[in-house]
């Protein structure tokens, strides 16, 4: 199992969390109902205390181990200093404006791309979005420190750029239409308005 983009990961997460939400609501509702009934309900299962604790620890830590193994951008992010990118784009943000490199940011399928973003004043965000507004990836952009995002694109698409951090009311217009184009993959993701995986 491996998730090749955010849409796959988020739809998996949507399913898993929705099921969990129904379970936890039902469990407490079941408790509530049986707590107040005259005849004493028998416990459905006996949950050993230390078993439950072990389950919580395994769940909390195991979830990170799971995503580390199935989501490619985690290990890539952690080891990005040792990876030589296929392409690097240097971007500056100043007075709520993205100053993009001269050439259009065109990326070939599967290339490892480094986005180096510098802020000259406030804290901003750097986020790429598909045409249907779903998020491809993002990072924070802090003034005075390194903001480098290494990303491998596995699907074609034309992505818009937005600031994903609030930088005052003026930041609301920080939007660059079609800032990034990925091409050469067999799969296209949400290229058209409203298009889905």
């Amino acid at each position: 199992m491996s998730f090749s983009n955010s849409l796959e990961l988020l739809s998996f997460h949507w399913m898993a969390y929705t099921i969990y939400a129904f379970i936890i609501i039902s469990v407490v509702a079941w408790f509530g109902y049986n707590l107040t009934r005259k005849e004493k309900a028998k416990s459905l299962v006996r949950i050993p205390f230390y078993g439950y604790m072990a389950f919580l620890v395994a769940g909390g830590v195991g979830h990170h181990i799971f995503t580390y193994n199935v989501v490619p951008w985690v290990s890539e992010d952690i080891t990005r200093h040792e990876i030589t990118p296929d392409k690097t784009f240097d971007i500056t943000i100043k007075k709520h404006q993205f100053l993009l490199p001269q050439e259009k940011m065109v990326i070939e399928c599967g290339e490892k791309v480094m986005f180096n973003v510098v802020s000259e004043d406030l804290v901003y965000g750097f986020g790429l979005f598909r045409q249907d507004h779903t998020m491809v990836t993002q990072m924070q952009v802090n003034p005075g420190s390194r903001n480098d995002l290494l990303w491998t694109f596995n699907h074609d698409g034309i992505f818009n750029l937005m600031s994903t951090e609030y930088s005052g009311p003026r930041g609301n217009q920080m939007f660059v239409k079609n800032a990034v184009e990925v091409r050469g993959c067999d799969k296209r993701v949400a290229m058209l308005e409203g298009g889905r995986l």
């Binding site: 955010s6 990961l9 988020l10 997460h13 979830h63 990170h64 995503t67 580390y68 989501v71 951008w73 985690v74 992010d77 952690i78 965000g125 998020m135 491809v136 990836t137 993002q138 990072m139 924070q140 994903t164 951090e165």
Partner: peptide, 11 residues
Amino acid sequence: DMAMNRVLHNT
């Protein structure tokens, strides 16, 4: 989580 936060942060 580092995988999820990349696409959930500030949403």
